[in-house]
């Protein structure tokens, strides 16, 4: 296995009955990069991300995450990855500390580690005054930032973010991306799906899914040059029209 790649996917297909959600896609994600996984709703993004997280089995194809095979070593993969989705950000009826402790515990951190990490995390996010507040009293943006910090609390080698900034205001989105950069600079690979095209510009590399296939892949700057467009919005529109 090449040490450089953390996710390797070759000819991955997922069928639900007659419907092919993911149609023989292949891509690789480099260690430490921010990989943008783009596409319209229903293009197959979520299905693909579920397979990579071990939530769902591919119908066929070769898939490895951090050198582990998703067919046979799904349980080991789960120890190595972090996951955060837009739908859920932590438990509303637990306070901030309890949420951190719970997920630290689930990922097998010792009590001492959990205590240390909680302190660092709470200080970094500036949550000292509300650490005992129930999560439901916090604004969505704070919850999302906390959820991201909790998703990487066990120092995973890769974290999957499924539309992490959905419904969040532009300023918080900006701050959120700063956190993603910081994690990335520490060597955590980021695998992120989004449908905000401006966020695609922040990624090291992106892939664009259309109807279960990957329609384009590469660095944002190169892709723009290739199609002769100024920004990712135009890129997306052009790509969708050419279909």
């Amino acid at each position: 296995m090449d040490e450089k790649w953390i996710v390797e996917v070759e000819g991955m297909t997922k069928k639900f009955g007659d419907f092919t959600a993911v149609d023989s896609i292949s891509f690789r994600v480099k260690k430490g990069e921010i990989f943008g996984f783009l596409g319209a709703n229903g293009a197959g993004k979520t299905t693909a991300i579920k397979i990579l997280c071990g939530l769902s089995r591919p119908t066929s194809g070769k898939v490895t995450v951090d050198g582990l095979n998703v067919y046979t070593q799904a349980e080991k993969i789960k120890e190595k990855i972090g996951y955060m989705s837009q739908k859920f950000s932590l438990y509303d009826d637990l306070n901030i500390e309890e949420n951190i402790r719970l997920f630290g515990g689930i990922y097998g951190l010792s009590n001492k580690e959990i205590k240390e990490k909680s302190e660092i995390l709470i200080n970094k996010l500036g949550l000292q005054d509300v650490r005992k507040e129930l999560l439901k009293s916090l604004p969505l943006g704070w919850k999302q930032k906390l959820a991201f910090s909790v998703a990487i609390i066990h120092d995973p080698s890769i974290v999957f973010l499924d539309e992490p900034t959905g419904g969040v205001d532009p300023i918080t989105r900006r701050q959120f991306w700063e956190m993603i950069y910081e994690a990335s600079s520490k060597g955590v690979t980021i695998f992120v799906t989004t449908h905000y095209m401006d966020e695609a510009e922040y990624c090291s590399r992106i892939s664009m899914m259309v109807d279960g296939r990957i329609a384009a892949m590469g660095k944002p700057s190169e892709l723009k040059k290739e199609l002769g467009v100024r920004n990712m919005d135009e890129f997306f529109v052009k790509l969708a029209r050419s279909k």
Partner: peptide, 14 residues
């Protein structure tokens, strides 16, 4: 319903 089951299934908890 909340979606937290997904998070739990992605975690190492069986």
């Amino acid at each position: 319903e909340l979606g937290s089951m997904e998070i739990l299934l992605v975690s190492p908890l069986k």
